[in-house]
Structure formats: structure tokens, C-alpha cells
């Protein structure tokens, strides 16, 4: 066969996966919809900062507002606290819910699979992409909040929830740990959304199902009679990053939350795998 000589040497398994992941990331971070979502979420800390700057100086403000007005780092914490229960999960759900269903909807899934991307590899790359989007989103929000905080409020020692004071450097480290924690929480949600995404060919269906799940769990969490259920629900765990503002940091609780995230990831990724590797692609 004359054409065979032109064939390049195939690369190793890891570099092949890495190339597909790069392609996936380029797609995600070039897609206008995703960029708009990131921009909107990054604007939230700026808005909160400006509002606190205008209102917070009027004496009798409450604890968090007064602390934010008093220290630039606290804006990051407040912003995450505002965005983590709903807005950030929705943004992650949009990207992760689109993962398989979106490709199926446009028909590109059949071409990716005959390329052949490999079902397991495609699923892994899609999930990693959603996880990295969650991390990038958290970093974007945190960075926007940090910069806004530095511009609007004084920098200096940070007061923890427990009333202890730590240095700015340690505060920054703790904010970094919070970003990691929140990104892990979003990774757990991404697993749920990707799993739902393998069950439908309509991306909006997978996204909507994930958002409904988030809202339903938030409601369940608010019902006192269901307190026993709360520790197993993702939203309960998401806001657990406030533990990093306590002294001593309740490490056992943070590990428990990370374990819970891990359990969600293992369960829903295996569900997605079982479904996707056996699915007839008819779109």
C-alpha cells in the first residue's frame, strides 16, 4: 500500500490522551458560552466588593461585611460563599452536562468514536475537562476577588472565624486551600453531570437535570427532619471550606468532605462508564 509509508509513528497512550484533552480544553475555553459564564461569575466579587465599599463603612455592619471591609482577603471568602451554593455549580453543570450529550446532539460523537477516540478515553477526557473547568472557574473567581479586595480594602493580618489572627501570607495559603476544596466539590458535581450526560442525547436535558438535582438537594438540606441525610448531600459539603477559617482547622471534617467528594466521583464516573461503553450511538 503506497499510502502506508506516509503514516506517522503513533504516539504513546498518555500523549494520545493528553492531545485529546488539549483539544477538549481548547474547545471548552474557546466556546463563547463558557467564557461568558466565567466572566459573569468573575464579576460577582467585583460587585460585592464595590457594594461593601459603599455600604460597609457605615458603622454598624454585621460580622462578615465588617471583616471584608477590614481585610482584602475576606472578599475572596465571601465571594466563594455567595457563589458556591448555586451559581458555580450551575456553570460547572453546563460544561459537564454538555460533555457527552452535546456531542451526541451535534452528531460529532459518532465521528469522535470512529476516529477512534475510544469510549473509555473519551469519557475520561470529557470528565477531566469538566474538572479542569471547575478549577479554572474557582481560580478565576478567587483571583477576581483577590484583586478587587486589594484595590478596595486594606491588606493585613486576617481574623479567623474563631477570633484568632493570622498573617496575610498564611491567609493567602488558606485561600489557596479553599480554592482546592471548592474545585474538589465541583469535581464531584461534574461526575454527576457527566453521568447524566451519558443517558441522553439532549445536552440541555442533562444540564437541567443536574441543576434540578442541585436545587432539590439544597431544599432537602433545609428540612430539619432530614438532618440525618444532610452529610451525604453535596451542597452540605461544598460550603465546608469555612473550616479553613477556623482555629484549629477541623482536619477530620475536611478529610471527610473530600472523601465524600471522592465517593461521588467514583460512583458516578463508574455509572457513566457502564452506560457509555455499552451505549448504541444512533445519533
Amino acid at each position: 500500500m503506497s499510502t502506508a509509508e506516509a503514516l506517522v509513528l503513533p504516539a504513546t497512550r498518555t500523549s494520545v490522551t493528553w492531545r485529546l484533552l488539549r483539544s477538549e480544553l481548547a474547545l471548552t475555553f474557546r466556546r463563547p458560552r463558557n467564557l461568558v459564564m466565567m466572566a459573569i461569575l468573575a464579576a460577582v466579587p467585583i460587585i460585592i466588593g464595590v457594594v461593601i465599599r459603599l455600604v460597609g463603612s457605615e458603622g454598624d455592619a454585621g460580622g462578615m461585611i465588617a471583616q471584608t471591609a477590614g481585610n482584602s482577603l475576606m472578599l475572596t471568602v465571601v465571594s466563594l460563599f455567595v457563589l458556591v451554593p448555586l451559581l458555580m455549580p450551575v456553570a460547572v453543570a453546563v460544561v459537564a452536562g454538555d460533555a457527552i450529550a452535546g456531542e451526541a446532539g451535534t452528531g460529532t460523537l459518532r465521528y469522535l468514536l470512529t476516529a477512534p477516540a475510544g469510549r473509555g478515553r473519551l469519557l475520561a477526557v470529557k470528565y477531566l475537562n469538566a474538572v479542569l473547568f471547575g478549577l479554572a472557574l474557582t481560580l478565576t473567581v478567587a483571583t477576581a476577588a483577590l484583586l478587587t479586595g486589594l484595590v478596595l480594602f486594606p491588606a493585613g493580618d486576617v481574623t479567623l472565624l474563631s477570633g484568632t489572627t493570622i498573617s496575610l501570607g498564611e491567609g493567602l495559603l488558606r485561600v489557596l486551600a479553599m480554592v482546592g476544596y471548592v474545585a474538589a466539590g465541583m469535581a464531584a458535581l461534574a461526575a454527576v453531570a457527566v453521568a447524566l450526560s451519558t443517558f441522553t442525547e439532549v445536552a440541555i436535558g442533562a444540564i437541567a437535570a443536574t441543576v434540578v438535582l442541585i436545587i432539590v438537594t439544597q431544599v432537602l438540606r433545609a428540612i430539619p427532619q432530614l438532618d440525618w441525610l444532610a452529610p451525604y448531600l453535596l451542597p452540605t459539603r461544598w460550603t465546608g471550606f469555612d473550616g479553613l477559617l477556623r482555629d484549629p482547622v477541623p482536619m477530620s471534617e475536611i478529610w471527610q468532605s473530600l472523601l465524600a467528594f471522592g465517593a461521588y466521583i467514583v460512583l458516578f464516573c463508574s455509572l457513566a462508564w457502564a452506560r457509555f461503553t455499552g451505549k448504541d450511538i444512533t445519533s
Binding site: 503514516l7 506517522v8 503513533p10 504516539a11 477516540a117 475510544g118
Partner: peptide, 15 residues
């Protein structure tokens, strides 16, 4: 085309 080329494990990214 680059997107689908990236999905082919037998194709190298270099060329």
C-alpha cells in the same frame, strides 16, 4: 479537522 485528528490515537500531533 484538527479536533477529529486529535481523537485519532494513530495520528501524531506534530504534523
Amino acid at each position: 479537522l484538527l479536533r477529529f485528528d486529535a481523537a485519532n490515537p494513530a495520528a501524531s500531533g506534530r504534523d
